[in-house]
Design a protein around this nucleic acid. Sequence first.
DNA 1: TAATTTTTCTATTATTCTATAGAATCCTGG
DNA 2: CCAGGATTCTATAGAATAATAGAAAAATTA
Lengths: 207, 207
Amino acid sequence: MPTSRDPTRYEQQRLEAIKAAAAEFAEHGFHGASTAGIARRMGIKQGSLYYYFKSKDEALFEVCMLGIRDYVRRMEVIAASDQPFESRLLATVTSHLSSYREKNEALKVYNTERLYLSEEERTDLKRQGSRYRQLLEGIFEEAAEMGLLRPSVDCHFAALSVIGLCNAWGELIVRDPELNVFDLVQQCTDLLQHGLCAGRQPTQHRG
Amino acid sequence: MPTSRDPTRYEQQRLEAIKAAAAEFAEHGFHGASTAGIARRMGIKQGSLYYYFKSKDEALFEVCMLGIRDYVRRMEVIAASDQPFESRLLATVTSHLSSYREKNEALKVYNTERLYLSEEERTDLKRQGSRYRQLLEGIFEEAAEMGLLRPSVDCHFAALSVIGLCNAWGELIVRDPELNVFDLVQQCTDLLQHGLCAGRQPTQHRG
DNA sequence: TAATTTTTCTATTATTCTATAGAATCCTGG
DNA sequence: CCAGGATTCTATAGAATAATAGAAAAATTA
């Protein structure tokens, strides 16, 4: 007997279904994927899937949610920490790229397929995505106030560039299992650091 | 009567068909797009499309080819020019981002849908894509030899990062018509320049 | 204008796939 | 073992859509 807050078998299986859907959507895209394929990955029949999902759309929504949830959560932690800017940037890139190596197909699906959801379904997701960006942007703003960034750098631009660069490498990581994520994290962080930060001397420039 | 090398009406219309397919694939993805939708954009009926394409797959292939052809061509020009490194980097970013603003939906389709093509069809495209990357990598290698890059920077990584960053911003450019591409080009180039290049003093280091 | 070629249309086939309904099976507690 | 609920299966309805064939229309040439 499961105690009051163990996951039900239903809940467990539903999670399996979401993961199976994530894999299928990541491989074939939402429209190219079939419910039969998802079911096959779970070892059940196509019709049985509808015990866990109301529709294929709902499956996509759940996959996207799964993809972004942890991702945002980790950023919450990084943003809330009192580490210096450089460490936070490193942590952000590490978290982001590791997500992809951990076969987080759901994150890839979130990135590439979410726009096929209905307007309403997307607003929920947008909240999460925006939160991520804002947290990251906040980190840059703090750094900017401390004079750590070059004055010409726009924080909004910086945040989106970090996300964009990491997603681009993420796609490559998913496709090529040989890629060394550790090296990549170093190189990306290095690129961003030099690209965004002021030189060695903190440029104690004050208007 | 068209002279010996004017485009035939057939060729013109076929190009229209490819563009219509590009728009449809860009909006709905390859599998989500319908041949009826492509035909509607051209103002013809669904069945008539097959006068120009053997199959939907062929349409995708042609769209991808259209997307990457000019793109590579422009890089050929940039790579062959004798301008200094900084100008070439700027030109690369400008060319890349402008492609997206010019509603080059085909390039977006190339980026996101090409993996749904058959193995053989993809090899043709891969040649083009690799060429682009190699040309860009070559530019970085030249710069490295001249000591313009920080020694820790890997040229392969640099090239892929430029492409990745530009594609990421490209997606945003396509979705948001308000975005000022000119500003963006500046900011991206700035980020890359500082991120990859050695400091002001060209580090006249010689082994 | 008549003949011929090019282009488009209509109608249809064949297939695929989502979603549903109800039967069958499995599991659990009594 | 039995009863009742949870889970999965089979079968199918219903819709969408890629691709084909042959007729029709439009354009071109003689």
